[in-house]
Amino acid sequence: MELTDEIRVPAPRDRVYAALNDPEILARCIPGCEELKATGPGEYEAKVVLKIGPVKARFGGVVKLDDTNAPEAFSLTGEGKGGAAGFAKGGADVTLTEDGEETVLRYTAKVEIGGKIAQLGSRLIAGTAKKLSAKFFSCFAEELSQPAAG
């Protein structure tokens, strides 16, 4: 499954990139995130509760950040396991483009899912994934529209 989208964030690029590296902001914005902690440079461990159709499960996973070209571009890879509910793994390529005082964030994510969540039919999963990413970015944009000190 591939997801692409483009979001305009009302903050300069450096602040956007910094926020994307801030476990606290991420934990607040990732839907269903119960725990997110940095385990090393560019490495996070997360616990997320996901509900897709009739399946609700706690996923435990790791995310790695490749910041070679940051802040213009960076990529994420990760995988999560939800026990009987299944598993997910994937990656995202993100670019941050400055546009005056704002930043345009574009991402292409590739997600592979398996187990019960995959069996529920790709239509349901694609819709849910789109909804979740939209939720994340709208929360993220809102976080950044607060004054810098906040």
Binding site: G114, A118, Q119, L120, G121, L124
Partner: peptide, 14 residues
Amino acid sequence: YDEMGNVKTGTLMD
């Protein structure tokens, strides 16, 4: 099945 071997039609919805 998809390439990962997931059953894509595992419920009466599909």
